[in-house]
Write a protein that binds this DNA or RNA. Sequence first.
DNA 1: GCACAGTTTAAACAAGCGTTTGAAATAACG
DNA 2: CGTTATTTCAAACGCTTGTTTAAACTGTGC
Lengths: 206, 206
Amino acid sequence: MSTKNKILDAAESLFATQGFNGTSLREITSQAEVNLAAVNYHFGSKKELIKSVMSRYMNELSPRLESALVEVCKRDNLNLLEVFSAFIEPLLSLNDFKENGTSNFLQLLGRGYSDSQGFLRWFLTTQYPGVINNFVKAVQKAYPELTAEEMFWRLHFTMGTVVFTMSSSDALIDIAKSDFDKTMDIAGVIKKVIPYVAAGVSAPLL
Amino acid sequence: MSTKNKILDAAESLFATQGFNGTSLREITSQAEVNLAAVNYHFGSKKELIKSVMSRYMNELSPRLESALVEVCKRDNLNLLEVFSAFIEPLLSLNDFKENGTSNFLQLLGRGYSDSQGFLRWFLTTQYPGVINNFVKAVQKAYPELTAEEMFWRLHFTMGTVVFTMSSSDALIDIAKSDFDKTMDIAGVIKKVIPYVAAGVSAPLL
DNA sequence: GCACAGTTTAAACAAGCGTTTGAAATAACG
DNA sequence: CGTTATTTCAAACGCTTGTTTAAACTGTGC
């Protein structure tokens, strides 16, 4: 395993559980068992390391997500639950790509939107606009009465729901176990949140 | 204006816009025009300062919120849109309590859930359980078929929606202005998010 | 075997952080 | 006024952070 990949793996799991600002380069290089200076040698800076960790997942996920959305868009009588359900399989496929891939990626996404004053938000929306465009197209077909402005708001609410849920999913899974004796994993959380956001976006216009 | 209040005011606005970890005591005392050591003299530590900033709002808000929820609970044929709408007036009343009070408080709440590994979450849920209990009671009356477990998940999704939306509300308001030429304020955002979360929690059980 | 590029290493750097100190300034009170 | 008690202040402390340095090591091609 190359030094570069050792760093990426260690950074990924630490970033997911502690956030970007909450994880120091010394923690990362120590867990990766490489020298501290290796991060700046191979990636240039911490910011570039964060981008690299995210890109590794986005390059894997975004084509699958795009084709799943294109596919669902072909259906007749499309509803929003079907649109949002299109995310499930591509997301869960990240578990084949890497252990805990789905969970790690979604948590990273959550961190990216709360930590570091939103530079990751800019990075993702400018680097991977295809996913967003296809998603908007599908929502439009499933709910044509929704104005562009209302869709803007509701998609951001949805982003918030998912991102917040995933960045605190460990705590939520623990509570579900202790309070309701239900053993949950990240796939279970996704299946719980999909009907919620679908209903939210489907809400009648006032 | 006392030194203590100068610090609280400066800390409040800086925490709201930059987060807790993203704001240093030197920034706070510089904006408050007091000495750096004043924070530790008056509050003991940064952590205690954070608690004080939040308590100032919670002590103002929680009784209003509780009585609004008790009031709405008395209605017949209660639906979830009514339950969530009960939050609007108490939240907006924070603008009388302090300039930008509503916006600041909701953003602080958002920060509290993402920053600082959730110690604020613990603080709020243990210090102000009355609000949560009354809220759960109202939701239960409006949607009796909802199991305790499903309610747990959906209320956390709702928390995520609100918290994320509010911590990024400045950016969202800017986008709404530039993309749709709609001038928004925090009250407008609240009125957009209420139907969304009401529909989400109202989603049919699978 | 030598030279050269690529990589790893220990050490230091400069800057920022929250907190503590002890003396100076101010306020309160008999 | 004089004597406490409270509050302010500049300075420093100890620690952590991301980044840089320059020397040592590794491997590949000539």
